[in-house]
């Protein structure tokens, strides 16, 4: 399964990296991993800000049905992932903004999609490896077409996010005032969920359905603790997601545990480290003045 069959780590970083990148499948993995991690890190900032982690979780599981469906009809898994995630995102985004209702509808969409996914893998006569690769990612197996499509989709998501950045920030932090200032809060919710669906679809290829938070939540949650200014937090989130992906790919290439395990572990480590750093900083110079809490 692992790439360690091809090469052994030599503890000379430059040589190891160039050796690793001499394999075309590793070039594909790095290219796809980088663009997807960038998009996931950026979109992830809004996932954390808007507390949409449950929606991200659900969309990735909806992607499972999409991936299984694509295998069934023998098209590239990314098409199925995109179709299902974006469709479900539109449904989730279209429903009311009340948290309670939203959670229930998201849960029902998630449950129905998993049921469909189970049906698809039941009908599908291929190998269990395909199912595993949807659940846990299959970055080393990514083909050229999927790399290009992932790059296009990720870039498109980031560009759209840039265009709606300010109103989306307003609607996320302060929806009531935003509404009064004529920001289309409802339409932005649908737009954001669609962007999230697209990002989830491409990220599932890297870390899989079950480890999606490694790229979509953990880096942003870590970044939010390290940087408060939105632009800085977004940049930090993207940087952490890319770093986790790069180091994860490197370790996955030279050592036997799978890449998604490394990325998930690194992302968890980044979050814990950020918590530690921010709580130390808070206890130090940044402490609020005594008695200023009301």
């Amino acid at each position: 399964m692992t790439a360690a069959l091809f090469a052994a780590v030599g503890w000379n970083l430059a040589r190891d990296v160039s050796q690793m990148l001499s394999y075309p499948f590793m070039q594909n993995a790095f290219e796809a991993g980088t663009v997807v991690a960038l998009a996931a890190g950026i979109v992830g900032y809004f996932v954390v800000l808007r507390r949409s982690a449950f929606a991200a979780h659900a969309l990735s599981h909806v992607g499972f049905a999409g991936g299984a469906g694509a295998a069934l009809v023998a098209v590239a898994p990314l098409w199925g992932l995109l179709a299902f995630s974006v469709g479900a995102a539109a449904i989730m985004g279209g429903i009311g903004r009340r948290l309670r209702e939203r959670d229930v509808v998201i849960g029902i969409v998630l449950m129905f999609a998993l049921g469909l996914g189970y049906l698809f893998i039941n009908l599908y006569q291929g190998s269990a490896t395909d199912v595993y690769s949807i659940l846990f990612g299959q970055i080393f197996g990514i083909d050229r077409f999927s790399v290009v499509l992932s790059a296009a989709v990720s870039l498109g998501a980031v560009l759209v996010l840039g265009a709606i950045y300010r109103p989306l920030l307003f609607a996320s932090v302060d929806p009531e005032v935003a509404e009064a200032r004529r920001v289309p809060v409802g339409a932005l919710n649908v737009a954001f969920m669609t962007l999230l669906g697209v990002t989830v679809a491409v990220a599932v290829q890297i870390v899989g359905v079950l480890l999606i938070f490694a790229l979509l939540v953990a880096p942003a949650a870590a970044a939010e603790r390290l940087a408060a200014r939105p632009a800085a937090a977004i940049a930090a989130s993207a940087a952490i997601a890319v770093a986790c992906t790069w180091i994860g790919l490197f370790l996955g290439f030279y050592f036997s545990p799978p890449v998604s395990f490394f990325i998930a572990t690194l992302a968890t480590g980044a979050y814990l480290a950020a918590r530690l750093v921010s709580s130390v900083a808070r206890r130090g110079g940044l402490r609020p003045r005594p008695g200023s809490r009301g």
Partner: peptide
Amino acid sequence: AFRGVDLVRLGVDGNRWGPG
């Protein structure tokens, strides 16, 4: 994480399209 200044800034141009 959102800071007070960023919240106030939204009052100036939060309804405008485009990046930060």
